[in-house]
Write a protein that binds this DNA or RNA. Structure first.
Lengths: 147, 147
DNA sequence: CGGGTCGGTCCGAATTCTGGACGCACGCTA
DNA sequence: TAGCGTGCGTCCAGAATTCGGACCGACCCG
């Protein structure tokens, strides 16, 4: 018998169905940075117009962005983060950090964030319960669908 | 004048060039879960064979995975995480959490992790300096390339 | 010999992405 | 009134990717 084919049911896979694509996440990045308009996103992401149009549509459909009329006559729209969209911040931050660490040239990271605590923001992923930084080795699967 | 077109130089964009695709990250997920072989990844991700082949190649080229012969005669390979690959754990965890919160059905998350501290793992992103959970509103851009 | 496993490759059809041109509804300037 | 600029797209056609399924070579097992 060939492969039984048993794709894992998994929140990661589901999440990637929606945001698992470059332009989608870059559009979200722009909104986090305050650029909510189509043309601005085109400029700052470099996405093709058609592609951005499509991505924005799926992001809106997924409840990550909201399309907002800021002018009738002529109709003009802005994209705002919903709660679900704001909850993507951790994803963006971890990607940012990974890129900073593994893909930055000698000039260092091109975009630096500062936390209100006064320090440069270095995002870490910690366990809500104990506050420790999470390491793959300190993590185990619980209950369902084994290896 | 039309759009000046000024795509942001950004670690997020760079990171997405490498891991900004569903199958790439799902392959990495499988390796984290201990499935290091091609066929196993095919089974558990649902990716087309050709696509997985291509993704594994770029992941290896990017220094995220390492291809390892575990048998000559017949030649057989496994994929292992490099340090850079292990550093993707935070990205995976934040995606997992987002999916758990926004895409899980009433049966709850299909995959649950446990931290060595004894509690279920709920990953949070915190500021390395002050330990506080990071909120988009408490974050500002520093120095380079404005809005 | 007849199966089965593993890690792919090959193929053709279907889909998606890309970049450039174009459109339309305005507002501004002169 | 004409002419230009902006904002937010759409349309198109060619290029690139993806998909699914068949196939393959090198084994091992009974």
């Amino acid at each position: 018998m060939a492969a039984p084919a048993d794709p894992r049911v998994c929140s990661i896979a589901r999440a990637l169905e929606v945001v698992g694509e470059k332009w989608a996440l870059l559009a979200v990045r722009e909104v986090f940075l305050g650029n909510r308009r189509f043309d601005e996103m085109i400029r700052r992401t470099g996405a093709p117009r058609d592609t951005l149009t499509a991505r924005l549509r799926t992001l809106v459909a997924a409840g990550i962005l909201q399309r907002h009329r800021y002018s009738d006559h002529p109709q003009r729209f802005e994209y705002h983060l919903t709660t679900a969209g704001r909850d993507l911040y951790p994803v963006i931050l971890t990607l940012l950090r990974w890129g900073d660490e593994h893909l930055a040239g000698p000039e260092g990271p091109p975009l630096v964030l500062e936390h209100t605590c006064g320090h440069l923001l270095v995002p870490e992923v910690t366990c809500q319960a104990c506050g420790e930084v999470v390491d793959p080795a300190e993590t185990t699967r619980r209950s369902p669908t084994g290896s």
